[in-house]
Nucleic acid binder design. Structure first.
Lengths: 213, 213
DNA sequence: GTGTAACCACACCGGTGGGTATACTCCCGA
DNA sequence: TCGGGAGTATACCCACCGGTGTGGTTACAC
């Protein structure tokens, strides 16, 4: 379900350059305000080539969102590998967010931004954005359930909200430590729901279930 | 500081119509994708009139954001009047959000959307959006401080994040009860910081300090 | 009764948007 | 050796964008 396509076609050198350039421009300046002409120029490519490779702006946008989504998910799963307990895994998602925001997220969440800019409800890019949000929330619910919480959503949903809120605090208010603040709040929230540093009583560890989607 | 201008000029009938129509269009379709021609048509007005009243699209956008911001702040302060304790005031902001989202916020936070769409850092609309975020967070910090919490931001910042997260959950995931979920989490968070239903020990009530900016 | 503010109707501007057409070059593999 | 995929270069299309100018009509105020 997570896999975006049966096989991501290798991408020609020019196509890779286009996607790279477009990703940067779309993220930093917004999708609607960046024209294909500019993308072509910055990628040292003609518009013809872009349309030969990607077909339309819409498809280029989707490719941009998908690759970025993949990178973020990889980021998260990387951080998860180092976490042993469900509680640690929840906290690891906040650590991932912290690192992510420090590196490549000054202008807020690309998915959310795209969701806003692509106001046409039928635009396929919106589904990508929504998918990412749903994925993270599901992941959190999974961990919370592993920790033995009866109704996982009651805890997982607020945890997801802390994620989103942290990104906003970072993007709009410039709060560089927002993810860590959110992490601390997540700890508090988990503790209140009985999820502590201790391993839960009678719940199977099911250790390697992390990288799965 | 909160007052937007020395005096909001009365607005001619046509101007009011323009602002109303533009607000709806900007919010539901996005600022960048709505042209002045469409606004004019929907308001039964010529473009000339729009430019006579507002000067430029940028200024119309700012007027849109300001009026919406004012309405939201009024919404919050209305809900605050019914709340007696600091804790109740914090929770009242979530109730306000719940009501607000039910009535006129299906497409997420207008301020955040504008912040995203107006990628030019110099656009005055961004300041309006940022101002609103800062205002709410400051308000929450005020209440938390009144409740006797030593470092108010440690609690107020996560509370603000829950706000933002709830709006995202509503806008992207369609979670209509998101604000109530956030409210419950806020209760938990406050309890963990010693903010309970009881009135704090030696803190002056300072009752009417709510409506002030 | 003459200004002036608030409008309408309409025509026009340069710029830019996404997207296409044509024609030519380079290089690699069958 | 030759076909085809990957590119380049350039010119073009039309729709729409934000914004302006001209000229005219109503209604109210001094």
């Amino acid at each position: 379900m997570t896999a975006t396509a049966p096989a991501t076609r290798p991408l020609t050198p020019a196509a890779r350059r286009i996607l790279e350039v477009a990703s940067e421009l779309f993220y930093t300046r917004g999708i609607n305000t960046v024209g294909m002409e500019l993308v072509a120029e910055r990628a040292s490519v003609t518009k013809k080539t872009i349309y030969d490779r990607f077909g339309s702006k819409q498809e280029l946008v989707v490719a941009y969102l998908r690759t970025r989504d993949d990178r973020w998910r990889g980021y998260v799963t990387d951080h998860l590998e180092r976490a042993a307990t469900p509680r640690a895994r929840v906290l690891a998602t906040f650590d991932a967010l912290h690192a992510w925001m420090g590196e490549e997220n000054p202008r807020g969440c690309a998915m959310l931004n795209a969701y806003t800019e692509l106001s046409d409800p039928g635009h396929p890019g919106r589904a990508v954005a929504e998918g990412q949000k749903r994925w993270l929330r599901g992941l959190l619910a999974e961990f919370v359930a592993e920790a033995g919480v009866a109704d996982p959503d009651v805890l997982a949903h607020p945890l997801a909200m802390l994620h989103e809120g942290a990104v906003v605090a970072r993007g709009v208010l410039g709060e560089t430590g927002a993810a860590l603040t959110a992490r601390a709040a997540a700890e508090t929230l988990m503790a209140a729901h009985g999820v502590t540093g201790d391993v839960p009583a009678a719940v199977a560890p099911a250790s390697a279930a992390v990288t799965a989607s």
